[in-house]
C-alpha cells in the first residue's frame, strides 16, 4: 500500500501516513507468525518475555565475542524452531541494524586509542585493534538484542506481550492504556489515510508548497478534533459498563511443565553467558 501511495506525487504527511500504515501492515504479518506452531509460540508469554530479557542482558554485558556469538547462534536457532523467516530477519533486522549501528560505530576504529592495525592511504587515519573490537562489540550486541526483541514480537500476539508486562510489575493501568493505544492507532491511521485519499480524489493539478502546508495543518487539526471526540465517547462507553477509574483485567496465562523447563533453560543459558562473558 505504501509503495502504491508513494508511486504518486505526495506530500510529507501522506508519505508519513503511508509509512505508518505500512508499518501496521507488518504487524498483521507478526500476528500471522504469532499463530504459527513453533517453539516460542507454545511458550507462556511471561516466560518468553523473561527468557528473552535473560538473554539480552548478558548479550549486552558480555566482554567476549565468543559468548555474544553463541547467544546470537542461540537466537538464530530459536528463530528457526519458531518458524520465523530468515529472509524477514535479514531484511528487517540484520541489514537494518548493521547499517544503523554501523554508522554509529564507524568512528570507533579511528578514534579509539590502541594498537595500530592499518593506516588509510591519503587520509592518514589509523585503525586500531581496540577500536575495531569496540565497533564489533557494538554491532554484534545490537544485532543479538534486536533479533531477540523481534522474535518476541513475531512469536507473541501484541496483546499478550502487553499482558505479560504485568510479570515485570508494570501497573494494570499502563498495560490497559498501551492496549487501547494499540487498538485505536489503527482507527486513527485509517481515518487520516481516508482524509488524505478523499482530498486527493478532489484535487486537480499540484498544490504549491504553501497550500500543501495549509492543508496538512488543517487535516491535523481535524484529526485532533476527531481524536478528542472519540476519546470522550470511549470514556462514556467505559463508564457505561461500570468503569470507575480503576481497571481490572483477567489473568489468562497458565504455566505448564514445558514453560517451567524452558524457563530453566533460559536461566541456565543466561547464567552461563554471564559467567563466561565476564
Amino acid at each position: 500500500m505504501a509503495a502504491r501511495m508513494q508511486s504518486r506525487k505526495s506530500g510529507f504527511l501522506e508519505r508519513t501516513t503511508a509509512s505508518f500504515v505500512d508499518a501496521l501492515e507488518h504487524t498483521f504479518y507478526a500476528e500471522e507468525t504469532a499463530r504459527a506452531h513453533g517453539l516460542l509460540q507454545r511458550l507462556d508469554p511471561r516466560v518468553k518475555l523473561l527468557g528473552i530479557l535473560a538473554l539480552i542482558v548478558p548479550a549486552a554485558a558480555a566482554r567476549s565475542f565468543a559468548v555474544i556469538g553463541c547467544l546470537f547462534a542461540v537466537t538464530v536457532v530459536l528463530a528457526g524452531l519458531s518458524r520465523v523467516s530468515f529472509s524477514i530477519l535479514l531484511k528487517r533486522v540484520w541489514i537494518a541494524v548493521l547499517l544503523f549501528t554501523g554508522v554509529i560505530a564507524l568512528p570507533a576504529p579511528f578514534v579509539t586509542p590502541g594498537r595500530a592495525l592499518y593506516q588509510l592511504p591519503w587520509l592518514g587515519w589509523t585503525i586500531t585493534s581496540q577500536g575495531l573490537a569496540s565497533a564489533g562489540y557494538l554491532v554484534l550486541r545490537v544485532e543479538t538484542a534486536a533479533t531477540l526483541c523481534v522474535l518476541l514480537v513475531l512469536t507473541t500476539p501484541w496483546n499478550d506481550v502487553l499482558k505479560a508486562l504485568r510479570v515485570l510489575r508494570v501497573p494494570v493501568i499502563v498495560v490497559t492504556i498501551l492496549g487501547m493505544t494499540y487498538r485505536y492507532v489503527y482507527l486513527l491511521l485509517q481515518t487520516a489515510h481516508d482524509m488524505f485519499e478523499s482530498r486527493r480524489s478532489r484535487m486537480v493539478g499540484n498544490l504549491t508548497g504553501r497550500e500543501r502546508r495549509r492543508v496538512a495543518a488543517s487535516s491535523a487539526g481535524v484529526l485532533l478534533s476527531k481524536t478528542f471526540d472519540l476519546s470522550s465517547e470511549v470514556y462514556l462507553a467505559m463508564q457505561s459498563r461500570g468503569f470507575r477509574g480503576e481497571v481490572h483485567i483477567l489473568d489468562e496465562f497458565r504455566m505448564r511443565r514445558f514453560d517451567w523447563i524452558m524457563l530453566a533453560g533460559f536461566t541456565l543459558v543466561s547464567a552461563a553467558a554471564f559467567w563466561w562473558g565476564r
Partner: peptide
C-alpha cells in the same frame, strides 16, 4: 452505542466481553 468503534476499546473480543464483569 450506535458506533461500535467507541465501545470496542479492548485489544481482543474476549477482553471486550470481559470488561464489564471485571469492573
Amino acid at each position: 452505542f450506535q458506533n461500535p468503534e467507541v465501545q470496542l476499546f479492548s485489544p481482543t473480543v474476549f477482553d471486550e466481553v470481559a470488561f464489564g464483569p471485571l469492573q
